[in-house]
Nucleic acid binder design. Structure first.
Lengths: 198, 198
DNA sequence: CAATTAAAGACAACCGGTCGTATTATTTAA
DNA sequence: TTAAATAATACGACCGGTTGTCTTTAATTG
């Protein structure tokens, strides 16, 4: 039970590779063969692990967002007395990772929302829950910052969290085509450093 | 010379249909055959009109953004003494059209930036110029509003135009998966009605 | 040995792109 | 104003390759 079975391992490898390839090449731009080859799983075995490509995509979405939730949670718990600073540092780390990867890929959620967000019911639902989970966490961080007096209170934390998520997604798209970190940096500065201040 | 040739007509039909299909199904999710069938152009003729699917995509992008530029320009010229009001009314009309189409599709630029913005050089360049053209127009409108005193002047018009474009793109993605106009409406209210105010 | 899972391979459908030919336009010659 | 010659375009069958999925067989496990 503690040692992962081969099946669980293959599933996890497929999901990890799915995150990478779907993020960089899109849903329709990535074939199952490519994913399977990358983790040395035979093509015939795919349907032993997942019901369909669409179901796989929906699982990949959740598999993608989990680490981000964990990471942001850690930042918030670590800097308990300065929630706004925690959020800022969290985004700074994201930007640093984006720079390392040469501004490619961006965010799987944003990319898939645009590509199949309104054509695949299964993935649409998965995207909804993933985005909402992330937004809620950001919202709770902003609410704490409001209590600490570092963020304005005349706007709801939910409203600001939504704006932050949306502007961040748009900035990631701009980053991709401009091959520059300037859009995401300015996005954080404008909102966290100005608009959200009391 | 005044009457469009059959070739010009076919090209235009293909581009129009390309806008619709690429926006709703994505680049890799749309085959050439589907586009050609929709406008009754034979398969073999496609390469008389366009060099490749990639080149076609790049032209579709420009063909898509043109009407938006024209429309926003009209709004700005029409309400010459109230640039901020013109921008607001322009976005209100966009929202009204999105509601009519059932929140499907969103923005071709946003969708393609996410899907192929960093994998196709040709389309990346086309996306760059399209987004920049649009941003510049918005920037000039905001600059005029600054002169009219309806928009704050301690932030550059360029910075605000970028933020507006980015947040709008993100809000469109949210709209697609939530099937609601709330994200785009709140986006405009937050920025045009609050953050940008002096 | 029975039951469950992994794997192989086939399947039809479709992809973007090519190519030789048929049709149409344009130019030249009478 | 014709007629012939030449150039340009339209066309659909076809290419090799790949897609997601399914059926069947092999292997593994309890």
């Amino acid at each position: 039970m503690l040692k992962p079975t081969k099946k669980e391992l293959n599933r996890d490898n497929l999901l990890n590779q799915g995150v990478t390839l779907l993020m960089n090449q899109g849903y329709h731009g990535t074939g199952l063969q490519e994913i399977l080859d990358a983790v040395n799983v035979p093509k015939g075995s795919f349907y032993n692990y997942f019901g369909s490509k669409e179901d796989f995509g929906a699982e990949v979405i959740q598999h993608y967002i989990d680490p981000f939730i964990t990471q942001l949670t850690a930042y918030l718990e670590q800097s308990d007395t300065d929630a706004l600073g925690a959020i800022k540092r969290y985004f700074d780390e994201l930007i640093s990772e984006l720079e390392k990867s040469g501004f490619k890929g961006g965010c799987l959620l944003g990319n898939l929302m645009g590509e199949i967000g309104d054509t695949s019911d299964v993935c649409q639902r998965s995207l909804q829950t993933a985005v909402t989970r992330y937004r809620n966490l950001l919202q709770s961080g902003l609410a704490k910052a409001q209590q600490q007096g570092t963020v304005r209170s005349d706007k709801s934390a939910e409203e600001m969290a939504d704006l932050l998520v949306n502007a961040w997604q748009g900035a990631l798209l701009r980053m991709k085509i401009e091959k520059s970190a300037a859009p995401v940096k300015r996005c954080c500065q404008d909102l966290l450093g100005d608009f959200f201040r009391p």
